[in-house]
Every structure is written in structure tokens, then in C-alpha cells.
Design a protein around this nucleic acid. Sequence first.
DNA 1: TAGATTGTTAATCGATTAACAATC
DNA 2: TAGATTGTTAATCGATTAACAATC
Lengths: 230, 230
Amino acid sequence: MEYRLHRLYSLRADESGDDLPDDPTRIPPAVVRRLALYSRALSDLELQNQEKVSSSDLADLLGINSAQVRKDLAYFGQFGVPGFGYYVKDLRENLKRILRTDTDVKVILVGVGNLGSALVSYGGFNRQGFRMTMAFDADRRKVGAARGDLAIHHIDELEAKVHESGADIAVLAVPADVCQAMADRLVKAGIHGILNFVPRRLNVPENVKVHYVDLSIEMETLSYYLRNQD
Amino acid sequence: MEYRLHRLYSLRADESGDDLPDDPTRIPPAVVRRLALYSRALSDLELQNQEKVSSSDLADLLGINSAQVRKDLAYFGQFGVPGFGYYVKDLRENLKRILRTDTDVKVILVGVGNLGSALVSYGGFNRQGFRMTMAFDADRRKVGAARGDLAIHHIDELEAKVHESGADIAVLAVPADVCQAMADRLVKAGIHGILNFVPRRLNVPENVKVHYVDLSIEMETLSYYLRNQD
DNA sequence: TAGATTGTTAATCGATTAACAATC
DNA sequence: TAGATTGTTAATCGATTAACAATC
């Protein structure tokens, strides 16, 4: 059958230690997001000493359909055992490798205000292998003061320090009126990804990715459904 | 033509001050989210004294298709003038009414840790008409201390105070191991919506809405595309 | 009126789910 | 082997976009 053939290809790919699809950038963001959720669920299961898990187990944990779990995984290869399910440890390792969270990822923080400070101490990033290596702020009174174990530099030093930091992701949490200017500087300094907490759309070159975390919009969307419920 | 007929219906609905669709809960969340983005963009345009805006102007501002702008609005009625566009002020007011952000919305905060504290001072909520009226924490040392102009109560008082607060939305920012228990208490106390910053899925009754803001997953999704780019 | 843009329909595109042969 | 679950295809569902008559 045809998919037997695919399987052979996939196994061969496995042996070469690489089963990424032809173009990993073509994977729908929704799929990547769920992959990260599977990975986290599998970590939990591993802590509970679960050895095996089925696609419907995983689906139930996330509140989705089991076919979706299998289809998402199928983008990257074959990780399960028909009639059995998946080995928790094995699948988790595969997902970490695919998501590239098997090695630490360095990020810098730009804007050490209320939200920025909170993000420094937010445990979730560290737990997933994201290391905040440096922070920058325009307020000289904040410079030097280490929040957590992180040194804060003045924003004037951004260009000079970014390369040293080794980061290619920036968390942006600056006032709205300077966010585009700051994004421009970050891009020039070699940053390729921005997690933007500022409620403004950023214009960046094609090769730079921006993800928006827009707290007010989330709140408004939630609010709409509540207030129209009854 | 048929849609002339619709228009008449719509106008009649307008006159009665109500042009919500038959079942407002059936509107896709993606549409509601964009409506909130349109509303914000229109506020900006109003500040710049723009009087008119076309669907393609708005689309360009958000980086989407102009047909989508028109279709999103069409769920709720007809707000434009063919051959002209939309009056900024008029459309903004209509959207605020639809989103029900023309009146303040009260929210409580549960968990005054690093992230919780930052959310108190986060200006974005206030600006959009969300008022944090109370906060709760399990640490008695935090109780009483007002952060911003917000009193912090001990979590034991949750049930007693929620009703008094008049809120039906809670922002949840507690440690992961207590988040389900806390969600249960919130629901019993009469909360109908939860903006959940804890990286855990919550089990709640049908009539309660949960929105997830999962910072690590956003970061991982961003990271995936970067590290697979070149 | 001529030019511009709406509101709507139909076409397209993409994502989710159902079903099942293949497999362990 | 019998029972269970995978990986895949096809069907369904939903969301986005193109096109254009209606309108100002």
C-alpha cells in the first residue's frame, strides 16, 4: 500500500536522525502550537511514570479530537505503534527535537516595566528552556540592578550587546509610542523573532517573525461572550 | 434584490437600538477578536482626527483582506456608505456597543504573584474599560497592601467578597497545582469567565468561558519557525 | 453623471473529523 | 490469534478571499 512506502521513507529519515518535513516553515502555526501542548502534556505524564499514551488519551487531555493528534504528528513522521499507542518518553523526546527545545534558547527582554519585570521572574519560560540572558531599559535608574539573575543594560547599549547575548529572540514590553522604533533597532541588531506584548502591529522584514500577545484583546473577546450569554 | 430586503430588516433593528445577530454566541471567536482590533484601530484614527475610513484602510492597518473586514461587520448589520466608506466615529461607537465595551467591565484578580502584580498595573485593561476591583492571594503578608488602588484580600474571603465586587470575570494567575481548585471555587462563587494565565487546562461547566494566555506556548511556536528558517 | 466602495454571494482555501485498512 | 490503535485518505466543516451588482 502507498503509505507503507511513506513509512519506509520515514524510517530511513529517522536513521539519518532527521525527520523534519521538506519545508518546516510550511507547518500551520496551529499545528506547532498543539505540538508544544503535547510536549508539555507528555512531560506531565512522564512525571506520573506513565509509560504509554494513546492519541485519544492525549486528545482528552487537551480537549481535542484524537484524529487531530495523529494527523499533527504525521507531519513529522511516524512515532506510534499500531494497536499500542505511543511510548511517552520516546514521543516526548521526538517532539522536543522537532520543536528544537532540546537545547536552550536565549532571549533578551526589552522594556523592564511592570510587565517586563514580571516576565523575568515568570517561571514558565525557564521551565521550557528559554533563558533570558539580558534586559534593556531606557531608565538609567534601572540599569545595573539585577532582577532575578539578569543584568539590566541601558537601551543605548542594545546594538553593542545583542550580539554578545547570542539571542535571536526578543521579548518586547516597551511603551506603545516607541515600539516600532525599537523593533527596527532589534531587527538591525540581528534579532529574528519578537514576542510582542505591546498592543501595536509591528512592521518588520519578511525574514523576521512577530508573535503578538494582546492581553486586552483576549479580555475583550472573553467579555463579549459572557455579556451576550443570557 | 434579496439583500435589499436584509437591509430593511437591519434598519428596522437599528431603530430599535438592537442589531445583534440572532445568537451572538455563534459568532466565531476570530471574528470577535478582529472586531476588538478594528475598535482599537478606530480609536487611534479618531485621535488623529480621521473622519472616514474604508474597509481597505482598516484591512491594511491590521494586515488582512478588505473583504474580511466587510464580512466581519456584516454579521452585525450595515455600518458603511457604499462608494464612501465608514464614518470613523460612527463605526467605533457601533463596535463598542456590539462588544459591550461601552460600559466598564469589572474583573477580579486571583493570585498576586509576579505576573498578577504586573497585570494590576498593566494599563491596557483600564484603557479598554476593564476595572480590576479586587485581588486575592493566599499569602497573608500581601493582604491589605494596596497595589495601585486595589485592595488585596485573603483567598479565604473569596466567596464572601466576589458578590460584593460585582465582577463576573476573574484573571487567574496562581501556582499551577492549585489552579483547578481555584477555578472550582470561582465558578461556585458566581464567576462566569476566566482569563487563565496558568499553563493548565481547566475543567469548568458549560456556561463558564475560559480563555487561555499561554506565554510559553507562544514562545515555543515563535521559536520553532526561527530555528527552522535557515 | 462617473468613480468609488459597500454588502453579498460564490469560489477557494485550509483545518478538522470520520472512517478504515494496516499493523502490532 | 483477537483486540486495540496507528497512519492515512476522504468527507466535512469552517474561514478567507474574489468578484460584482447595488449604492451613494
